[in-house]
Each structure stands twice: as C-alpha cells, then as structure tokens.
Simulated scan of single mutants.
Amino acid sequence: MRLKTAGMLTGLAATGFVLSQVATATSVMAAPSVAQSPTHIYIDGTNVSNPVHVVAMDPWGDNKTSWVPIFYLQQALSKAVVQTKWNGSDLTIIPPASWTIQPNNLKTRQELKNGEMDFIVGNNQYEIAPKLVEKDPSSGVSTTYVPVYYADQALSKALGMEAAWDGLNWSINTQSTILPTSVVANVMDATTEVGQPTVHFGTPSNQVTVATGQGKDTISAVVGLRSPSGDGTGQLVFFFHNKQFIGLNANVEAIRILSVKPDGQGRIQVTYANYASSDPMVKPSLPPQTVTYTWNGSTMTPSATLDAGVTFPTQVTAPAPTVSSSLS
C-alpha cells in the first residue's frame, strides 16, 4: 500500500484535450456518491478554470482527499503552454522546451495495477496515483478524477512547480513565475528584528501568486519564519512584484499566519491567529483576523490595521523595496 501524508493541502494540476478521452478510463472505486465542491484553478495568478471537484477516500491512506477531473487538470496546464496526453492510465506531460526537467527525482519504473495511473515526463515515470471514475457534473459524462495531492507530488518532482490547495482554490505556479530561491533567501536573511541583528527570517513557504490584470504582471507572497524560533511563532509575509521584493505585510511580526490565499486580481488575503493576552501560544481564543492586501501600482495596501492580538510588539527592518517595472 502506498501511503500519503494526512492533511496535506498543497497540490498541483495539469490539463488539455478532448473530454471524450477521459471517459475511456477504467473505474477504480465503487463510489456511488461523493461530496461535490466548487474549485477555482489559478495558473500563475490567473483564474483559468472553475470545475467541480469531489471529496472521497484515498484508497492508499486513511483519510479523505480532493479529486479533480483530469480533463480540467489538462486544460489548466495548457494555459501555461504545457501539453498533455491521456490514454486512460498514463498522463504524459510535455513542458515548454525552455523549462527544466528535474532528473534527480525519478521513480523506478513500475507496472500499473488496476485502479492506478501515472505521470510521465520525458518518457520517465515520476509518480503513481490512484484514480477515481465519477460523472463530471458539468458534462454528465463519466470521467477520470485525479487526486490533487498526487498531482502536486508529480509536478513538483518533475518540473519544480509549486501550488497551494485550500479546499477551494488551487493556485499553481509554473517555472515562469516561481521566485528564485536565492532571491527569497537573500531578502529573508537581510530582514532582522530591530535591535537583534542576529535574528532574521527563513523557512519560506510555497508562494501564492496573483495576476494584476496588467499584461503579465504578477504579485507573489511568501511567508517567512523568524530564525531562531523554537515554537514556530514570529512570521512575516514577503511580497514580490514580477520577482522583485516590494515590502512586508507589516513592520512587526505576526504570531502565527493561518493562511495566504489569492483574492482576485492584485489581491492577496492573509488570515492571522488572534490571541487574548492570557492565551497560550497553542490555543488562541479570539476569532482569526483576515486582511486583504491590494496592489496599488507601487506597494501592497492592507484593508485593515492588524489587531493587537495578532502581532508581537517587536519591530522588524527589511531591505529597501526594489523598483519594479511592469511586464507586457
């Protein structure tokens, strides 16, 4: 049995051809009734598809997981000029020639069993996954569903892509928009607590990217953690415009950031844990605070001032924002 980590929320997608192709897949699970939920798929910050996904048991684990019709997976990737081919068991992914295929994450080639599919890149097998056949509510046609978690693993291993999945939004970042590791690391390392120059930031999260609506312009957000941090508290959101640093969410550290999500063109939504003065770090008692940060052409402006229970009093200092130009 292949196991996956319970509770994983990251995921990656792929998509492109004729819907009738997916109807030839072999049914994997007898799942006469599954929960259906809306989905918003973003490619490099642009909302490209809004299908319905289902929530059903992962046959290789002990928890429920989210599944998306493979047609929409293919269709979404086609927006990033990534070609795909589906034959009922193999999803072959053909990235642009300028992209880098990761050669160090290959699996030993295995034969597929009944109810399995795989992800092929460069004639190599990068991941095997369970598959589910259900009716697509949009077309009424029986189609193959792919689990978000395993799609995430495949595209991350094969193409170094990133995505964030929160049960509604699937934000997928391709090689075209992923922030260089060195850029993020340099900015975080140069961000310190005032009066404590040895305390800086690291452990970056996956980025969340939105389009600004102006050509190929994008805004990306990455969460960094105070270093050292013995309890996982002390976090900042680092914002980038076209891969150039433009500032922080605040000049003080958040105690804990619960989520970072796309919220439309040029908008990123951040939700913070909110603590009463007597709360232990493991159990905030106040309702979380959600703030939307909006691109105004030069910086990200918050929709509200952070509540007192959201932040530590310690101020931070960051590198000067880089003057960023628009992309056409």
Rank of each mutant, 00 (worst) to 15 (best):
G61N: 06
M57G: 12
V81S: 13
A30R: 04
T92G: 02
M29K: 10
L73N: 14
P96R: 02
K64D: 15
V68I: 15
T84P: 01
N105M: 06
P96I: 04
A35R: 03
S33R: 10
N87R: 05
I70D: 15
P103G: 06
V28S: 13
W60E: 14
A56P: 04
A56H: 08
P51H: 05
Q83M: 09
S98N: 08
V68Y: 15
A76T: 08
P103I: 09
I43Q: 04
I70A: 13
Q102K: 06
G45C: 03
H53M: 11
N63A: 09
Q102P: 01
F71R: 00
S33N: 09
P103Q: 09
P51D: 07
K79M: 01
P51V: 06
D62N: 06
T26F: 00
I93S: 02
Q75N: 13
A76M: 05
D62Y: 12
W67T: 11
M29A: 14
N87L: 05
V68T: 14
T46G: 05
S49V: 10
V81Q: 12
Q75L: 11
I93V: 13
T108F: 03
V54G: 04
F71M: 13
I94C: 05
P51L: 04
P59W: 10
V54D: 01
N47R: 03
A31R: 08
A80Q: 07
T39P: 04
A25C: 15
V48I: 09
H53V: 03
K107P: 01
L106W: 01
N87A: 03
N104G: 12
A35Q: 11
V52G: 05
A97F: 04
L106I: 12
P96D: 08
P38Q: 04
F71C: 08
D58Q: 02
W86C: 07
N87W: 07
I41N: 03
N47D: 15
I101G: 04
S78T: 10
I70L: 15
